[in-house]
Design a protein around this nucleic acid. Structure first.
Lengths: 234, 234
DNA sequence: GGCGTTGACAATGTATACGTTAATGCATAC
DNA sequence: GTATGCATTAACGTATACATTGTCAACGCC
């Protein structure tokens, strides 16, 4: 079977020749979402080229790609700007993620998921519980992310997967920052379990509502934390 | 006021220096969505560069940008492929558009739109009615598109606007093709009116449902037409 | 007759050169 | 002191050169 693929949008992590452009894209993305390159900072093409030990061309191409993903902004003669997120930006993003992940929950519940997939979701919730017990927030965040990713992946909708990944990247820094500020996420774990139950039972509308409420709560929590701590942009 | 912008993602049609890269991007996009470059066809960088009377560099950059928007796929040494859409692809896209536009309807209704904006929506529905009376399908499609764009724009959510624009582009060809195959869209016009009424009345949940049903119907209609006519990809 | 191998070739990926353009600072006028 | 205009120059946008690499077909082996 010949697959027609939309590579950059849909195959995210797929095999690719490790071209300089690809390396630059991957490295820059990681530096951005992990806060190695600070939000709002500007970097000349030549500076990044030197940093990555390559010429301007692949850096430039990587910048175009990452601009398409909303992580940087190319400003002629000023440099490549690491896009900072305001609270308003986060609200935009969370609205979209809420809606699309809720759609995912609905679709997955409706089409009746494989037992294997349900088991994987449950294993992620188990990991979350374990992490909560150990008070290991990094592990919790990782399991939480794995759960959400798996849920979306189960739809099989490649474009949906791509959009959610893109916007999750954009709020990644904010999640990192608030991870240690939030109260222990007992409620969140309970939400995840309830969602899996609804999905397993094929209750699509209920799954959608559970997930929507879950996401709205997460958004409010995060925005509250950011406002409380007087962070205007990050 | 210094505006922090996410240009490529969020400012779609904004002012930009008419660089060669920009020209290439705009021209190629139009050639793709208007079927000047046929779905599935492949084009070498050098071929497009000659066609557009510029060097390979801006063509290459445009290809990267359009790949990020799902319109083309860059296949090393084979060329730039105009991405064809299968029925499955269209279902993916319509699911997303349905969900996000329904969110838009909800948000707009909830926050209470300006009278001006409501008036503009109504003027688009008037145009649709006029076009329907004249049996001018091109005008109808244009007014329909203007209505949907305006609705989404009214949210003020730039990312939402960007995503909807991107995926609308992807199904543009299919809309062109089915425009003259579908029955006269009386129901569609009625849906739009009902939606505006719900929004004007601030009935957010109802607006969401009306729009969702509207979109689902549109999707089923299109997919039915395509299946009926034995079109496997376009 | 089909399949793996090999080599020529074409297209790309990357670096680099260079002309253009806009940001910046300073001189000057008000 | 502030505003205006201009020169300077850094950075970019684009073209181009070249090495690399994947494709394709011819060839020979199985």
């Amino acid at each position: 079977m010949i697959e027609t693929r939309l590579r950059s949008m849909l195959d995210e992590g797929a095999e690719k020749r490790p071209s300089q452009t690809r390396k630059a894209t991957v490295l820059l993305r990681e530096m951005v979402i992990s806060n190695k390159l600070l939000p709002g900072s500007m970097h000349l093409e030549s500076e990044l080229a030197e940093l990555l030990a390559m010429s301007r061309t692949p850096v430039r191409e990587a910048a175009i790609i990452l601009e398409g993903q909303g992580l940087v902004e190319v400003i002629p003669r000023r440099g490549i700007k690491i896009v900072p997120l305001s609270v308003a930006d986060m609200e935009e993003i969370y609205s979209i993620l809420t809606e699309l992940e809720s759609l995912a929950a609905y679709d997955v519940a409706r089409k009746g998921p494989e037992a294997d997939d349900i088991a994987e979701l449950r294993s992620h919730t188990d990991d979350m519980d374990a992490a909560l017990k150990d008070d290991d927030r990094a592990a919790w965040a990782e399991a939480d992310h794995a759960f959400h990713s798996k849920l979306v992946a189960m739809t099989g909708n490649r474009r949906l997967i791509s959009i959610v990944a893109t916007y999750s990247d954009q709020v990644h820094r904010a999640r990192l920052l608030t991870l240690h500020m939030r109260p222990k996420p007992y409620k969140s774990n309970a939400d995840h379990r309830a969602l899996v139950d609804a999905i397993a039972a094929g209750e699509a509308d209920r799954a959608r509502e559970i997930h929507r409420d879950h996401r709205v709560a997460a958004k409010n929590l995060m925005i509250g934390l950011i406002a409380t701590h007087g962070l205007s942009a990050l």
